[in-house]
Each structure stands twice: as structure tokens, then as C-alpha cells.
Amino acid sequence: MLYDILRPIIKVLFKILYKVKVTGLENLPNKDVAYIISGNHIHIWDPVFLAVQIKGRHLHFMAKDVLFKSKFLNWFLHKVYAIPVKREDNDIVAIKSAIKVLKNKEVLGLFPEGTRNKTDKKMLEPKGGLVLLATRMKVPVVPVGIRGEYKFRKPLIINYGKPIYLDKYYGKKLTSEDFVEICKKEIYPEIIRLKEM
């Protein structure tokens, strides 16, 4: 409920604070389809910027566990469907939570770089979780490119691409290294294209 109350308010605030331009919303799958939104990560507000654009659905975002340390933030982040994840480990609890989201035909947000990339020049080495979840749960990945500065009245652009289906990898035995290489081969080129549009 808190998510639904805040979404329209934050969306208006974004439009007041920044010159927002969004393209490709028509590429988002139908309401009965689970999918993963995945893009580059330039700022702490990226998950919020993505979440407020999606109509009629909640975006469950994986976020680093240190954000959940205070009682208030722990309560708030759970209310807005954030999933705590330990970035240094293979966090089985976080993976199970993400699988549950996708089983329920909901939308999962995941930054494959695993952290913010402030250079805006080169994508960081991806983590394997994105491809692991997409292939195991047989769901498409919607690539996203984010560009701009979170500064007053500066342009802030988000481009959604067409869903990427990794069906040729379904049912195959894949290693952690495979997950990383598939992400670099199948997902990263489209994210890079979208963020440079």
C-alpha cells in the first residue's frame, strides 16, 4: 500500500526536479508475465526511477543488505518490495526470494554490475545472478539504459529495450563463469546501446 501511495507522488517529484524522458515502455511484457528488468546503475535513486515508470505492477528490487541495518530503513525497504542481498556471497536466501517473486509472475529488478558505476564509460564485470535467475525461471530480461545526472533540471533519460529471451540456455548445465559470459554476450550490448541513445 505504501508503494502505491508513494509512486505517483515520486513520479511528479522526478518530473519537477529533472527533465525526464522515458522511451520503450511499450516493450514491457503483459501483466501476467514475470520478467526481470536489468540495466546500468549510475545512482542510488535508479531503482526508484525505474519503479515509478511501471504502471499497475510492483518492482521488487534487489538491494545491498547494509541498507537494511537501521530499523526504519529495514521497515521501509521491505514495504517498497526491496530484497536484501549479500553482494560478497552466493546469497541463497536472496536468490530464493527472487525466485518467489518470479514464480508469482511479478517483476524483479536487478543491476548485473552489482554496485553503482560512476565512470559512465565501461560496464563493470557482471555478477552471475541475472542469468542464473532468467534461465532457471525461464523469464525474459528487459534491458534498460539510464543516462543523465540527478541534478536539478538536468536531463534524466531511461530507455527500455525489447525483452531478451535466453531460451537457448534453458535446461543446460551452466557454471558461474557461464552466467557471467552469457550476460556479457547477450545482455550487456543492449544495455550499452540503450544508455547511449
Rank of each mutant, 00 (worst) to 15 (best):
M1V: 11
L2F: 15
Y3T: 10
D4P: 06
D4W: 09
L6S: 02
R7H: 08
K11E: 06
K15T: 10
Y18M: 10
V20H: 01
L25T: 12
Y35K: 09
I36W: 02
H41E: 01
H43R: 10
L59A: 00
D65V: 09
F72N: 06
F76I: 12
H78S: 12
Y81D: 13
P84R: 00
D89F: 00
N90Y: 15
D91A: 03
I92S: 02
I92E: 00
A94H: 14
I95T: 08
K96F: 03
K100S: 11
L110S: 04
F111Y: 15
E113G: 07
R116D: 03
R116T: 10
N117Y: 01
N117K: 04
K122L: 15
L124N: 07
E125V: 15
G128A: 09
G128M: 00
G129E: 07
L130T: 07
V131K: 05
L132C: 09
M137G: 02
V141R: 04
P143E: 05
V144K: 01
G145V: 00
G145S: 07
Y150N: 13
K154R: 12
P155A: 08
I157V: 14
I157W: 01
Y160D: 06
K168M: 15
G171M: 13
K172I: 13
K173W: 04
L174S: 02
T175G: 11
S176W: 11
V180P: 01
I187V: 07
I192F: 04
